[in-house]
Design a protein around this nucleic acid. Structure first.
Length: 516
RNA sequence: GCGCCGGUGGUGUAGUGGCUAGCAUUAGGGCCUUCCAAGCCCUCGACCCGGGUUCGAAUCCCGGCCGGCGCACCA
């Protein structure tokens, strides 16, 4: 969750995101809706690249990971089973005098010292009366407790048919589809089902732009493993030396705030992380976040405190990232055990088991859940560069995440430079995300490229017509080198796909600038 | 949800009861231009929404919406 120490430039960044139509309020011509946002062309392209990187990390490079796309609208019984109908209903009371809102169950708990989260509204009201609980703030009388449901509800069918809800998490579809997918894909333990999709929560107070949204995108993975297999991940050796930063529950209780650094192997062997499957994914998450260009020092995994932990989860680790607007949680890891499959099995009267060594077993579930919008927003926040070092703001996005890899410009739109440039643009289109720009001065076009984080600009000048060379301008250094047209594809592919450094490219491919 | 503050072209702003609603920038078009937001000309574009007060409302009042901050909330 974001902390309060906002730096002044967050609003500036939000403004740039809106101005450039990267992300902006939904239905803004009607005044907008709190907590719902649109992504414009540039935002969409960046998000596609994050999703694609996620797939390559967690789906394509793994064995036995099956991606699905579930429906957003699910019938009520699903949420009776999952527990969301109960736990997503927060009982709130309002002070009749100062209008402050409180959790009714929390007030009762604070007064009695006993758990009250299972009490009904009527019971809570009775307790409040009985114990004569007053407003903790002003001592005024409290009103009746009301349910505040965080799910968006509706009805399926023309005449008040079946109650249904927009899913509050993507996970449920995976459990619902578990049996059919496992069967059809001939899955054997361990295996995983992945999903990228929208979820909906009717937040009481959405805030902080893309951090707390009412409609948001999750990238989730439910990993199914035999309960006795949880410390035996087949590929753990591949990640075991990965160093992560970790803040355990113990450390937090002692008031420590600085995470420790250790290898994932050590974190697992000391049982800071309760099972090897979870450890494996935590290591991969760290690699994924680094691949997005977030420095290792800026993120860590924090074990949630008991009171922050959901009832079904035996262990929770959040990946938290330090940003200009505070600490933002962007991945949640939960060990859901057999909670979901057992519940759905019971409520649906369907056996949700899989065969393992000729015996039926209810697998245990490890769940890494990524908030795509938050990851996207964090990337924009941390890559943002204000107007200190140049006369315009820019985004230092990693080349492979940038909306466009390359902008192609004719130095001027005459003398055939424009035609030559357009030809090179068409040619590069096959391998890269390219945009063509011939309007305005060349400096202005470089500035426009910087503003949306395009890492490289190719400029076609009079030398191109003479000796078939072009210049490449590097966003980060603003330096320019000349390379031969022939090498262009290779140079760009080294820079963008291979992550080759600008310095090395300069050395290996840079040509001397021809004399006037 | 509560409280405080705010809302004028895409963006930043000027405008304290009577303006043809001004400026800068962006964007589109044109001229010019041999590498980092050059210059010149033309053009598009705004008073958040709904009521009320008033001869007259961007301006005052009420309600709503949106945003910021604080509180509460965040399975």
């Amino acid at each position: 969750m974001p902390e309060k120490n906002k730096e002044p430039n967050v609003e500036e960044i939000n403004e740039v995101l809106t101005k450039r139509a990267i992300a902006f309020p939904t239905a803004e011509i009607y005044g907008g809706v709190a907590g719902i946002y649109e992504y414009g062309p540039v935002g969409t392209m960046i998000r596609q690249k994050i999703m694609s990187l996620w797939r390559s990390f967690f789906v394509w490079s793994e064995d036995n990971v099956f991606e699905i796309e579930g429906s957003l609208l699910l019938p009520e019984p699903v949420f009776k089973a999952s527990g969301h109908l109960d736990t997503f209903n927060d009982p709130l009371v309002q002070c009749e005098k100062c209008k402050s809102m409180f959790r009714a169950d929390h007030l009762v708990e604070d007064t009695t010292g006993e758990r009250a989260d299972a009490l009904s509204l009527e019971e809570l009201e009775a307790k409040i009366k009985e114990l004569n609980i007053k407003c903790p703030k002003c001592g005024g009388p409290l009103g009746e407790p009301r349910q505040f449901n965080l799910m968006f509800g509706t009805y399926i069918g023309a005449t008040k048919g079946h109650p249904a809800y927009l899913r509050p998490e993507t996970a449920q579809n995976i459990f619902l589809d578990f049996r059919r997918v496992a069967h059809a894909m001939r899955a054997t333990l361990p295996f995983a089902i992945a999903q990228i999709g929208r979820s909906f929560r009717n937040e009481i107070a959405p805030r902080n732009f893309l951090v707390r949204m009412r409609e948001f995108t999750q990238m989730e993975l439910e990993i199914f493993a035999h309960p006795e297999q949880l410390n035996d991940h087949p590929n753990f050796y591949e990640v075991e030396d990965k160093i992560i930063r970790l803040l355990t529950r113990e450390m937090q209780k002692k008031g420590e705030t600085e995470p420790m650094s250790l290898t994932i192997k050590e974190a697992f062997e000391k049982r800071y992380i309760p099972n090897q499957f979870m450890a494996y994914y935590i290591a991969k998450e760290a690699m994924f976040i680094e691949e997005l260009g977030i420095p290792t020092d800026n993120f860590w995994f924090r074990e949630l405190l008991e009171e922050e932990t959901a009832h079904y989860s035996a262990a929770n680790f959040d990946l938290e990232i330090k940003t200009p607007m505070g600490i933002i949680e962007c991945v949640g890891n939960a060990y859901r055990q057999d909670y979901d499959l057992s519940k759905h099995s019971k409520y649906s009267k369907t056996k949700l088991v899989i065969q393992y060594k000729n015996k039926p077993v209810v697998p245990h579930v490890v769940e890494p859940s990524f908030g795509l919008d938050r990851i996207f927003y964090i990337l924009m926040l941390v890559s943002y560069r204000g107007e200190e070092d140049r006369k315009w703001s820019w985004f230092k996005l990693p080349p492979h995440i940038a909306p466009f890899h390359v902008k192609v410009c004719p130095l001027m739109k005459k003398d055939g430079l424009d035609d030559a440039a357009y030809e090179i643009y068409q040619e590069l289109k096959d391998s890269f995300d390219v945009i063509y720009d011939q309007t305005g001065s060349i400096g202005k076009r470089y500035a426009r490229a910087d503003e949306i984080g395009i890492p490289y600009c190719i400029t076609i000048d009079y030398n191109t017509l003479e000796n078939d060379t072009v210049t490449i301008r590097d966003r980060d250094t603003m330096e320019q080198i000349r390379v031969s047209h022939e090498d262009l594809d290779e140079v760009l592919s080294l820079l963008i796909d291979e992550g080759e450094s600008w310095e090395n490219i300069k050395e290996d491919f840079g040509l001397p600038e021809p004399k006037e």
